[in-house]
Design a protein around this nucleic acid. Structure first.
Lengths: 133, 133
DNA sequence: CGGCATCCAATTCGATACTG
DNA sequence: CAGTATCGAATTGGATGCCG
C-alpha cells in the first residue's frame, strides 16, 4: 500500500482496537468475583464449598450467580456428582483455561505490588497500604 | 531440606499465594472503569475530556472518581496545565505503567475471544454473543 | 451439599444540573 | 474544560429459611 497512515490515525486505530478488546474481556470478567473464581479453578476442579471456603468473603448467593455467568459464557463446566449428599464440581473449560495467562499476569503483578508496598513501608504493613504508594 | 511437602500442601500454598496476589491486584483495579482507563493511558497522556470521549458510556462523575482512586494509589499522575480554559492531563506513573503487560494480556485475550465468537456464529455477530459460547 | 427465594441494607453507578 | 452536587436507579451483599 502506498497510502501512509499518519501517527495520529495509527494511534487512533491501535488504541481503539486495544480498548475494544479490553471491553470485550472485561464484559465477561465483570463483577467482583469472577477473576478470583477463575484463579481458583485454574489449579483444577473445585466443588462449590471449596470455592466458597477459598474465596474469603463471598456469599453463597454471589458464588452461585457468578458461576452461572461463567458457565453461560462457556468458561466453566458444571458437573453434578452422584455422591451421598449431592456434590457439584466446577472446572475450567478449555476455553476458560485460555484465560490462565491473563490471570497469572494479574497474580504476578499482585506479588510485585506487595513487595513494593513492603519496601515503601519498610516492613510495616498497613491496613491502608493502598494510600501509601 | 529433608522435609517433604506433599502435593496437597504444595497446592494449598501455591494456590493461596496466587489467590492473595489476585486479590491484591483486583483491590486496586476494582470498579467498572479502572482497567479501561489504564488501557487508554497506556498509549500516552490524555486529558479529562479525551478519556471521557474515548471511554464510551462513562459519566464525568465516575471518571473523576476512578482517576482519583488511581492517583491515590500512585498509578496515575495529574497535571493541571495553564491553558485558557483549564486543562488537566493524566498520565501513567512508572508504577502504573508496570501494569501494561497485564492490560495488554487482557486486550490480547479479548481479540482472540472476538475471533472465537465470529467463528462460532459463522460471521453473524450477535448482540448477545456472550450466550452463544 | 448445593443451591433458590425472600427481604433488606450498603454500595456503586448514571443523568442531570451547575460552577470556576 | 474539568470537575462537583444531587438524586434516584441498579447492583451487590448479608441473613435467614427452605428444599432435594
Amino acid at each position: 500500500m502506498s497510502t501512509k497512515l499518519n501517527k495520529e490515525d495509527f494511534d487512533q486505530d491501535v488504541c481503539g482496537a486495544h480498548h475494544m478488546a479490553i471491553r470485550d474481556t472485561m464484559d465477561i470478567l465483570n463483577g467482583k468475583w469472577k477473576i478470583r473464581i477463575i484463579g481458583m479453578l485454574s489449579f483444577g476442579p473445585r466443588r462449590f464449598m471449596e470455592l466458597k471456603s477459598g474465596i474469603e468473603g463471598i456469599a453463597a448467593k454471589m458464588l452461585s450467580k457468578e458461576l452461572r455467568d461463567l458457565e453461560v459464557n462457556g468458561l466453566v463446566t458444571r458437573t453434578v456428582l452422584n455422591t451421598k449428599p449431592i456434590t457439584v464440581e466446577y472446572e475450567l473449560s478449555r476455553y476458560g483455561y485460555s484465560l490462565k495467562p491473563v490471570i497469572d499476569g494479574i497474580a504476578a503483578w499482585g506479588i510485585e505490588h506487595r513487595k513494593t508496598i513492603i519496601n515503601m513501608t519498610k516492613g510495616r504493613v498497613s491496613e491502608h497500604h493502598k494510600c501509601y504508594l
